[in-house]
Amino acid sequence: MKLPRLALCLALMPALLHAAPLSREHKILFFGKDERVLVQPDHLPWQAVGQLQTRSRNICTGTLVSPNVVLTAGHCFLNDQGKMDKAISFTVGLWGNEYEDRSQIAEVYVDRAFLKGLIRRKDGIYIPPNIGPRDFAFVRLKTPLGKQQGYIPVFQGSREQLKKLLNEKKWTVTLGGYPIDDQRHLRVHNHCKATDLKNDGRLTHRCNSLEGNSGSPIFVFDAKGQASIVAVQSSAPPAQRRKHEDNLSVSAPMFSQALRDFIQRAKTAESR
């Protein structure tokens, strides 16, 4: 099996007033037809989903999980050489050329084992399977946004408890973010299928996602319509392997304790 290459963050292009036409390769990346829909981020959980930008103008998707903490993917903060790419801003309520709020970044946490285990080649940066479950990151905002926008809880149970929940939901999940074909509007794939919860903590799924969806939340909704994050989008196989491999995400049990610790530190830092 070939290693997944980090290709899901992208250079920020000029503002798009309309969705760009999908290329043939992008269409192949979908599981059948494009079932994503446009969702205006003016209500939860989508108010809490926003766009991260780095110094090299790469963008990813992230989600507020406390008033001043954003959950996303670890590889979002790497440049083409595999070096840390400074985070600049996080924007919520992005819709066309307007947005609800924005904050600069105070701190980024990326797992050290993930950074150490990356494979750097001339054609890009690759994630070997042994560090794939560590492709997550936490961001502390300079200006808390979750007090106004709201934030989304992260599933706190074990792998076995998450598997039980997914069985109860018939492995139906939802993914949303800001993909390459429409970087200025939120696109959501509702009621898509998770396919396996691997022993190493990665959740495979068939939710349609493109570059820019790195760090996108994968939600499960309860009977009252309340969302919780069960995984964060990591990578997708190239188009030529789409029929044989599903998308990869990192399940919540892999990062929930580290996230709780980070949120506590963020609270301490804010109170100073």
Rank of each mutant, 00 (worst) to 15 (best):
A73P: 00
A73E: 02
F77I: 08
F77T: 07
L78R: 12
L78T: 13
N79G: 09
D80S: 08
D80E: 09
K83T: 08
M84R: 13
D85T: 13
D85P: 08
D85V: 14
D85F: 15
A87K: 11
A87T: 06
A87N: 02
I88P: 01
F90T: 14
T91N: 13
T91P: 07
V92P: 02
V92F: 04
G93D: 03
W95R: 13
G96E: 11
G96A: 03
E98N: 14
E98L: 15
E98D: 13
E100W: 12
E100G: 09
D101K: 14
R102L: 14
S103I: 07
Q104L: 13
Q104D: 12
I105K: 04
V108M: 01
V110Y: 01
R112C: 07
R112I: 02
A113T: 13
K116L: 15
K116G: 12
L118E: 01
R120C: 11
R120E: 07
K122A: 10
D123C: 06
G124D: 08
G124F: 09
I125F: 04
Y126I: 14
I127E: 05
I127Y: 00
P128G: 06
N130E: 15
G132F: 15
R134S: 03
R134G: 02
D135R: 12
D135I: 07
F136T: 08
A137K: 09
F138I: 02
F138E: 05
V139Q: 00
K142H: 00
K142I: 02
P144N: 06
L145K: 10
G146H: 07
K147H: 03
K147E: 13
K147D: 10
Q148D: 11
Q149Y: 02
G150P: 08
Y151I: 11
V154R: 08
V154H: 12
V154T: 03
Q156S: 13
S158R: 02
S158I: 06
S158T: 10
S158C: 04
S158F: 02
S158V: 11
R159I: 15
E160C: 07
E160N: 13
Q161I: 10
L162S: 01
K163D: 09
K163Q: 12
L166D: 03
E168C: 11
E168D: 13
K169W: 01
K170F: 10
W171L: 14
W171I: 12
T174A: 06
G177D: 04
P179Y: 06
P179T: 09
I180G: 07
R184S: 14
H185K: 10
H185A: 08
L186M: 01
L186H: 00
R187I: 00
R187W: 03
R187G: 00
N190T: 01
H191D: 11
H191A: 08
C192H: 00
T195Y: 03
K198Q: 15
D200C: 01
G201H: 04
G201C: 05
T204G: 03
H205W: 04
